[in-house]
Design a protein around this nucleic acid. Structure first.
Length: 115
DNA sequence: CGATTGACGTACG
DNA sequence: TCGTACGCCAATC
């Protein structure tokens, strides 16, 4: 059974992802950059992978790559699970590509201030 | 314990 | 503009 790995980076990723407002999305790199590890964007993806095992829900469907492409949709079980969740929040998705991505993009480095 | 992989992104040619 | 190479760190093989 998975425990709460409050190491730092991973847990911070989970927290930021949970802070993503409904109907908004962000990118792995944006989160990594917010954490001060812009070059560790891959770890954000790994965090999401581990997030699947967490007890607390993590809206990983609101996290996409820099292109606004649903690269992680394959990890949701169903091919359209991620797309369904996004559209359910009012986000338009076409061919695994988020429409108006630039518009609904939620940048933690701007929306959230580093305390 | 060494090599490979992974939900990415940037740099370089 | 497109394709390839590398970095980053942890988990898995």
């Amino acid at each position: 059974m998975p425990e709460y790995n409050n190491d730092t980076f991973f847990d911070m990723v989970y927290q930021v992802v949970r802070l993503i407002p409904k109907g908004r999305v962000t990118s792995y790199g944006a989160i990594a950059k917010y954490l001060g590890a812009s070059r560790s964007s891959r770890m954000v993806g790994w965090a999401m992978n581990n997030a699947h095992t967490l007890q607390d829900p993590v809206p990983a469907h609101r996290v996409v790559n820099r292109n606004g492409l649903l690269t992680g949709k394959a990890h949701f079980g169903a091919p359209d699970a991620m797309k369904n969740l996004l559209e359910k929040e009012g986000i338009s998705v076409k061919e695994d590509q988020i429409l108006d991505f630039k518009k609904i993009f939620w940048d933690p480095t701007e929306e959230l201030e580093i305390t």
